[in-house]
Amino acid sequence: MSTATDTTKAVEETTGKKRKKKVPTEVSILLVLVGISLLFEALGWIVRGDSFLLNPQRLLIMILQMSIIGIIAIGVTQVIITGGIDLSSGSVLALAAMVTASFAQSSDYMRAVYPALTDLPWIIPLAAGLLVGALAGLINGSLISLTMIPPFIATLGMMVSARGLARAYTDGQPVSMLTPDFMWLGSGANPVIIFLAVAAIFHIALKYTRYGKYTYAIGANPQAARVSGINVRRHLIVVYAIAGLLAGLGGAIAASRAGTGQAGMGLMYELDAIAAAVIGGTSLAGGVGRVTGTVIGALILGVMLSGFTFLGVDAYYQDIVKGVIIVAAVIADQYRQRKRSKAKT
């Protein structure tokens, strides 16, 4: 009978002490990224007789395009991990871009928004943009955790209002003629560097800090999180504020790169950001998600955009395909969820 005992224990002993890592979801997303890239490479040779990948210029432009969406997607990822959603990031980006630009104008310009505050060093407009973003996020977070309204509604309200505020700020006029000093922020590969730095910071924060562990716990089961001594309300406010801060950062970079602040900036970026997160394996049900996944998700969106343009596919069709991909990502998420909860319900 003692032989009967232990198929399980034998397994336990071999794997028990050394904590074996399972293959993370990122690997499969990375494979999707590689697959899509190779597909465009093949199509490139067939359709245009040219290489898609072996063109550093194109790759840089693609990554540049994605870095702003990537930055806000990292904030949105954290919100989704808590079981929430942030629809306001695109609008907050626009508002932050306007405010940032208004503090970055050069004194050569006659119609500056604040004629007395021109030629300021770049750090000041950047700080203004970050502050505006963080404030918007703070309002989102406070609304959600103090009034208990669903995040979808709170951030939908912010999405509409922040866009309105961005327009009202200068009566719909663009804010232009920014100082070279400030234009430096978004020049060259800087946005990419900032994006990667932000990704590294929050990858570490989610994985190795109390902040991160609480974020996952709240998404996995808010009631149990509270009973485990987590101040759930306060933590949610912090998470939404960080998401706002990152949207603000995106706005500052966008203004710097374009050399102007416009109220129409970042239109539908919130959806791209959510898409990047979901494609990257973040679960809309909460409790699951990683920054690395979101970065790859953003790259997938970028490769698609750049690939279709390279092939000369019309923008309308690009949107159609993007829609399909987003839905497919959510279906994949549902499938994973079902597989997870099939075990013990």
Partner: peptide, 21 residues
């Protein structure tokens, strides 16, 4: 199930959560 477990998280994450201070 309601107020104790984080079903989707690991055994480790479930065990350590109250002591992250």
């Amino acid at each position: 199930k309601e107020t104790g477990l984080f079903l989707d998280l690991s055994v480790l994450e479930n065990m350590e959560i109250a002591v992250l201070r």
